[in-house]
């Protein structure tokens, strides 16, 4: 999922300064899992905005706001209210904000779309409702086959491909002593698999052109263009 954290409320009210009639759009996909933009948080935000003197036209959470079709289906019944809106506040990832803007543009509406969350990356949920961690950079050339299913590109602060730096102590990273050194994890995993010899292979510099932004995924052809 895409991890999100709430922006401070003052930052949101600052972004909404000068706009009175607001519609609040959440996301019942990732933001719901992060407890930042699901139906509950959208309702809470609507209440807070009202207390802050705003008129809230409606508040809703599409099933996945990053899908243009799902967002449009959710917003279609609200079109009349949308036409009245001074601004939209989206409690979703940066993608949800931009898809919402695109849906509005497709309606022919030019309304400011503001974001109430900060997106913090591709996250894997370890404990539902408690903890998610970043383990994948979507680098476009997965090397997990070579590294025992543990990603050094993401889990090593320096994205080292050919082994650890010299900074780990007691198995922990020099950057954050609470975090495991990715390369020690990889080493232990490969040792357990009896495949340590595979770590001797020289790993070529990464092809970062595969991460060149913005990527475009041809879903039909199943390839990046």
């Amino acid at each position: 999922m895409i991890g999100t954290t709430p922006k401070p409320f003052e930052e949101i009210t600052d972004a909404l300064k000068g706009y009175d009639k607001i519609a609040v759009i959440g996301c019942d996909g990732c933001a719901k899992v992060c407890m930042t933009g699901g139906s509950d948080q959208v309702a809470e935000m609507a209440e807070k905005l009202k207390k802050n003197g705003k008129s809230v036209l409606f508040a809703m959470s599409p099933e996945r706001t990053c899908y243009v079709g799902k967002t449009k289906t959710s917003l279609d019944p609200q079109l009349d209210k949308l036409k009245e809106a001074d601004a939209l506040l989206v409690l979703g990832c940066g993608g949800a904000v931009q898809i919402t803007r695109q849906v509005l543009e497709n309606y022919g509406l030019t309304i400011p779309v503001k974001v109430g969350l900060d997106s913090v990356g591709h996250m894997d949920t370890l404990i539902m409702g408690e903890l998610a961690i970043e383990q994948c950079q979507e680098c476009g050339e997965c090397i997990l086959n070579e590294t025992g299913g543990i990603c050094p590109v993401t889990k090593c602060a320096k994205s080292l491909l050919n082994g650890p730096c010299g900074g780990a102590e007691n198995g922990k990273c020099e950057v954050d002593s609470k975090r495991d050194c990715a390369w020690i994890l990889i080493y232990n995993r490969m040792a357990a698999l009896g495949e340590l010899d595979k770590l001797r292979r020289f790993m070529e510099p990464k092809d970062y052109s595969k991460m060149a932004k913005p990527r475009r995924l041809n879903i039909k052809e199943r390839k990046v263009e």
């Binding site: 602060a157 994205s159 080292l160 491909l161 050919n162 020289f202 990464k206």
Partner: peptide
């Protein structure tokens, strides 16, 4: 922003 485009082993080879 940290770069770490390549690592020390790759730098030596380069």
């Amino acid at each position: 922003k940290s770069v770490f485009d390549i690592d020390s082993v790759q730098l030596l080879k380069i």
